[in-house]
Design a protein around this nucleic acid. Structure first.
Length: 157
DNA sequence: GCCAACGTTGGC
DNA sequence: GCCAACGTTGGC
């Protein structure tokens, strides 16, 4: 059996929610995803226990900061129902929620983050979805080969 | 701060 | 259902 059958990369801006926040909280609902493709990954494809790479975007440089894991079945994102919330969606109702999320649990923080330029230099990651042109999706799948390599690199320092 | 690449919205 | 206009993401 493969070590990491399904793995995911989840982006967050450290200003808003960083891996240190996750380390402090232990578990967090991954709120605020308002993109259907990203939602579908959480809704249909993620399974409890899947490995999560925690990515800090808009950093200098951006980097993979550590690991988490999927910690719940999908359920409706409560922020879509709250008119005062920045993620409020007037078209969503409790009977017909639009946005689903999963909980993410903290696993570990890398001593040295894996940076974006570093990944670009490594031919092993040429096909990594994160590095493809125009890849703006906030949740991306990571195949088992890449997952194993990334864990190795992250822990090797 | 700029801007390319996307995604979404809404008029028709 | 098309497509222009607009908004957002995220690297640089």
């Amino acid at each position: 059996m493969k070590k990491y059958e399904r793995a995911w990369l989840m982006k967050s801006e450290p200003c808003c929610y960083s891996i240190d926040d996750l380390m402090r909280d232990g578990v967090t609902p991954w709120e605020g995803v308002r993109n259907y493709q990203a939602r579908n990954f959480m809704w249909r494809d993620m399974k409890v226990g899947d490995l999560v790479f925690f990515y800090h975007s808009n950093e200098k440089p951006s980097h993979i900061a550590g690991l988490g894991e999927v910690a719940s079945e999908p359920y409706p994102d409560k922020t879509q129902f709250d008119p005062k919330d920045e993620y409020f969606d007037p078209k969503a109702t409790k009977e017909k929620p639009r946005w689903f999320l999963v909980d993410v649990k903290f696993k570990e923080k890398f001593a040295e983050p894996i940076t974006l330029p570093q990944l670009k230099l490594d031919p092993d990651f040429a096909t990594l979805p994160l590095l493809q042109k125009g890849s703006r999706l906030s949740i991306l799948p990571i195949n088992s080969i890449h997952a194993e390599l990334l864990v190795e690199i992250g822990r090797s320092v």
